[in-house]
Design a binder for these strands. Structure first.
Lengths: 178, 178
DNA sequence: ATCTGCATGTAATGGGTTACATGATTTC
DNA sequence: GAAATCATGTAACCCATTACATGCAGAT
């Protein structure tokens, strides 16, 4: 049994948010908001769009004055599929392939200077990410209305920020250890 | 350029912790401690061990009364490679492929019942994982000596626990939202 | 001597990334 | 109308997972 494919559902979700989108548009989504927790590239997306169209999850919206850009929209079946997926309970937590944990794991000695270096680097990365997340929040959710209009998105942004703040606190607590 | 391979370094790290190990031993490691943040299976590991032996990162320790189990040990070059890797700063944070975030992202409406369901399921998963992590901590690090002997491992277990506790707190804070 | 279990090994399949390719549209 | 840009498409390669295969060891 091959790994459960997620990409088609992500694509369904993205298109349904916007009504109709081109492959390019979808590709772009992965560089911003969704990019925080899912990655994909156009060379995956275009073939997937074809497959999904063949499976009747998507339909192509003809555009008379531009036959280069292909606009996709959910079919009824596509919407049903997306809804079913959203209702399906998740069975396990993801295993994040985390180099920080991995390297730390192999450093046994409390006084190994590489441990300090690792912690320091990690702190820089977390700070940078946190700054980025805060920027997104300010940009996207500065008004009550914006929050209510995309509540799920708002929540997971909050969650990401809370996580990174917790990690930063934890990392800072390690410094005086040395 | 293909994705940066991590597995060989993980294998170097695992073997170096124990002095010498068989493929089976290494496979088992991925089901316990390291399994919290990295996965691999024997069908990846055995070919990798061969490659690493060919590359002179590992050497085979002959065992006269058992030519079925093959014991591997780091060479000097292998140890050097591992140390270099441990010193190399990480360049970015991992993007965890997180179904919870993904599904939440696509639920716009604050009052959508699927949001509550998702949160509830996630809470169960986090609780279960937290219980498991606490169990590991009690089992492995109940003494001061144990902590000092594997300080890196201790730290990342602490980190994982802190993370999950933070997430649980966050999830609980969502409940009264309705 | 056969059966069972186990460490190791291999094959088939599919996802994902990078790099390259195509063809149309815009720009100058 | 040539060149550059851009949306879409394709190929090559590698990694990972699942399932199956081999062959030795110990048990009966």
């Amino acid at each position: 049994m091959p790994a459960k494919r997620i990409l088609p559902y992500v694509i369904l979700g993205i298109i349904s948010e916007h009504g109709q989108l081109t492959g390019k548009d979808i590709t772009k989504e992965f560089t911003t908001d969704i990019g925080e927790f899912w990655k994909s590239s156009h060379s995956q997306i275009y073939p997937e769009l074809r497959r999904m169209t063949a499976d009747q999850w998507l339909k192509i919206i003809p555009d008379p004055d531009n036959d280069k850009e292909i606009h996709y929209q959910l079919t009824k079946a596509g919407r049903r599929t997306l809804n079913e997926w959203l209702e399906t309970p998740n069975e396990s937590l993801p295993v994040s392939k985390d180099l920080f944990s991995l390297k730390m794991f192999f450093i046994q000695d409390k006084d190994d200077p590489r441990m300090t270096a690792l912690i320091d680097t990690q702190m820089q990365l977390v700070k940078k990410n946190l700054a980025h997340l805060n920027e997104r929040q300010q940009l996207l959710f500065s008004s009550e209305a914006a929050i209510n209009q995309n509540y799920g998105h708002y929540l997971i942004l909050q969650r990401a920020i809370a996580r990174q703040e917790a990690q930063l606190t934890w990392l800072k607590g390690l410094i005086p250890v040395k």
